[in-house]
């Protein structure tokens, strides 16, 4: 009896000893800055000598009147609603196709679909920018094919600029999500599919009856990650369109950046408050997602 609890205690001590370095690092590098950012969000003035905001939560009430931030929020949610479903459906379909054992050059195709993820966000945004420039490749190709008669100002018009950003996002992230689905699919026993086949289920039924339910944890995870990622969208907005035309493509993170280190007068306190609002949004969305996606209890 005595001896057993001694062993348990020993195990516990070692467990904590192994956990401690990572825990301390996460606390110091991640949670401590979070607390500091919250304190900063209640302050105003130049960062070198900030003073408390009066009233204390003024930075937060100010957000509600900030038209540019509301615009950026609208833009971000627009990207979210359009881009995430398209991307995830494409990813799951591609994963399904590339999981087929009879497919030749599977490895090659998988690499190709995943390849965009190896490209840095900034470089791909700049490449898209030059492709869609007024005198860029897309315009001259369309002109030579006689599809358009005048150069389209892709990045200078609200609708097309948003479409270009969404296209870019889909190109960049579909392969990334596909890899998760592929890994999930490979964990599903092939015999399950064979059994379904024997029972006479067609491809569509197999997909909805077997693949989707068994992939549910992976789908929930990719959803949370995509929502989280889209809410923090930054590089595309900065590098592709610089938020233009007339702030119609600016994202929340880009606006936060503008408020702190971008052009104009730095407002670190207000930027921190904005960041916390985004944090709460991500938290709420992730919670809803977990609630919907989890059927265990």
């Amino acid at each position: 009896m005595n001896k057993k609890s001694g062993v348990t205690r020993k195990q516990e001590v070692w467990g904590w000893a192994f956990l401690a370095p990572a825990t301390i690092l996460i606390f110091v590098m991640s949670f401590w800055p979070m607390i500091q950012a919250f304190i900063m969000s209640l302050k105003k003035g130049p960062a070198a000598n900030m003073v408390w905001q009066e009233p204390l939560f003024k930075n937060y009430t100010r957000i509600l009147q900030d038209k540019t931030f509301l615009t950026s929020m609208g833009n971000t949610f627009l990207y979210l609603i359009i881009e995430v479903p398209i991307m995830l459906i494409l990813a799951i379909l591609l994963a399904q196709i590339l999981n087929n054992r009879d497919l030749k050059f599977r490895g090659g195709f998988r690499t190709m679909v995943f390849m965009p993820c190896a490209v840095s966000l900034v470089s791909y945004a700049l490449i898209f920018k030059s492709l869609f420039a007024t005198q860029g490749l897309i315009n001259s190709a369309l002109m030579h094919l006689h599809i358009i008669s005048e150069n389209i100002n892709w990045l200078g018009t609200t609708g097309t600029a948003r479409a270009v950003i969404i296209m870019g996002l889909i190109w960049r992230w579909t392969g990334y999500n596909m890899v998760f689905y592929l890994a999930g699919l490979q964990n599903i026993e092939y015999s399950v599919y064979e059994a379904a086949k024997i029972d006479g289920a067609n491809g569509w039924k197999t997909f909805w009856g077997i693949t989707v339910p068994l992939l549910r944890p992976v789908i929930v995870m990719t959803f949370i990650m995509s929502i989280n990622g889209t809410l923090q969208l930054f590089d595309e907005s900065v590098n592709l369109t610089n938020g233009g035309p007339s702030n119609s493509t600016i994202t929340m993170s880009h606006y936060i950046w503008n408020q702190s280190l971008g052009v104009g007068v730095a407002k670190f306190g207000y930027a921190s408050a904005l960041a916390f609002v985004v944090f709460i949004m991500v938290g709420i969305l992730a919670f809803i997602n977990l609630k919907v996606g989890d059927t265990r209890d």
Partner: peptide, 16 residues
């Protein structure tokens, strides 16, 4: 943990 992932990015931004 998901929230931590989100906020640590912004905490970094806000802190400069």
């Amino acid at each position: 943990l998901v929230s931590a992932m989100a906020v640590s990015v912004f905490a970094g931004c806000g802190g400069g």
